[in-house]
Write a protein that binds this DNA or RNA. Structure first.
Lengths: 199, 199
DNA sequence: GCCAGAATAGCACGATCGGTCGTATCATGG
DNA sequence: CCATGATACGACCGATCGTGCTATTCTGGC
């Protein structure tokens, strides 16, 4: 792996940190360069434009998310165990982590880009749609596995699951509510209970 | 009402439009001035700083929200009717409205300001905390009115309610999902059903 | 209809934005 | 160990940022 690739990854890593705090638009070449001790032009040479830097940041984050949340979940047996894994990993993902101090960049980008047409928005929308489809498939797997009732609407289930995560992020990051996690978990348990084959 | 006040309100009205699309940080004096056909300095004279402009925008939006969502709801009889009113008005509020084409500014600001300490964040947090407390009181009212079981956790109920709204905003604005509203309504009905005194 | 004070415009400032270019330095394969 | 391409730098561009200062225009009370 060449030196250029190493530097490029260091740049992107730091850019993810900054963007998670200030947003993809708040990300600035000057402050990014200062943040990694490089000249602005030296940094810029790794990307054809600021937008390509932003795209790299987004793509890297999407890949990280798949590794951190999706893959461990997909390895679990389908139905409840898989959904529980997804949920807990997703909660953990959006905690403050050193590589993303401003919380989930994808969530930040979702409100930031929702009115800004362009390739960045397209990329994000595609990733979010794919993820939603995955969740729907996992919910359907709960039915196939016999954990959930057949009348459960997988798309509605996926909507409710993501809504809980969004609520948790809101309460924890903005309101700094220490109950955010327990509320989210309780809501998730209620969602599971409502979907389960009644005992 | 003096001419100055009229102009000031016209400025803020337009600023709300712009900020709902580009965010409070994306709001710019130059583009705002151009948008209402004024000189940048003439506009600026109405505010001591950009931050005061942003503060005015936030405060105006918070007041609008109270009038649009809270007040009609508070006029309804407590318990389910009041909560249903709140929910529907809240959904309507975050639709694209001509005075806020970029969707709910408060939601946008929530992710934008969650890592930016300062008076703007403080103002937003206070408004959101107050609103949450209101929701909790309304949920408690459902118990007092005999609509909900006594074991219902009002804080959890309020969390779940706001989560549904957040999910609806996400699906509608980013994913452009036409099912967003019906998913939100179905989730709300499920929430009500789970809280009701079992029949 | 005049005049004080409010309202707006003109202009300039230092800083920073994304981006370009020519040059120097570094790393590495032959 | 040297040549050469990859990598990084400094200087600079025009545009725009937020924010002052000053002059002009407008407006409402007497």
């Amino acid at each position: 792996m060449g030196k250029g690739t190493v530097t490029r990854e260091r740049i992107i890593g730091r850019a993810v940190e900054l963007a998670s705090v200030d947003g993809l638009n708040g990300l600035t070449l000057g402050r990014l360069a200062e943040g990694i001790g490089m000249s602005k032009s030296g940094l810029f040479a790794h990307f054809r434009s600021k937008e390509e830097l932003q795209r790299s940041v987004l793509e890297t984050t999407i890949t990280s998310f798949r590794r951190f949340v999706y893959e461990p979940g997909a390895a679990e047996p389908r139905g409840e165990p898989r959904l529980r894994s997804i949920f807990e990993r997703w909660l953990a993902w959006q905690q403050e982590r050193e590589e993303m101090p401003g919380g989930c960049l994808l969530m930040q980008a979702s409100t930031e880009l929702d009115d800004q047409p362009g390739p960045l928005r397209d990329l994000l929308v595609k990733a979010q749609r794919d993820w939603r489809d995955t969740l729907i498939a996992f919910a359907r797997g709960g039915i196939t596995a016999g954990h959930f009732r057949a009348e459960v609407d997988p798309a509605l289930f996926a909507f409710q699951l993501e809504a809980i995560i969004l609520g948790a992020g809101h309460d924890r990051r903005l309101l700094r509510d220490p109950l955010a996690l327990s509320h989210a978990r309780a809501a998730f348990e209620a969602l599971l209970a409502s979907a389960r084959t009644t005992t």
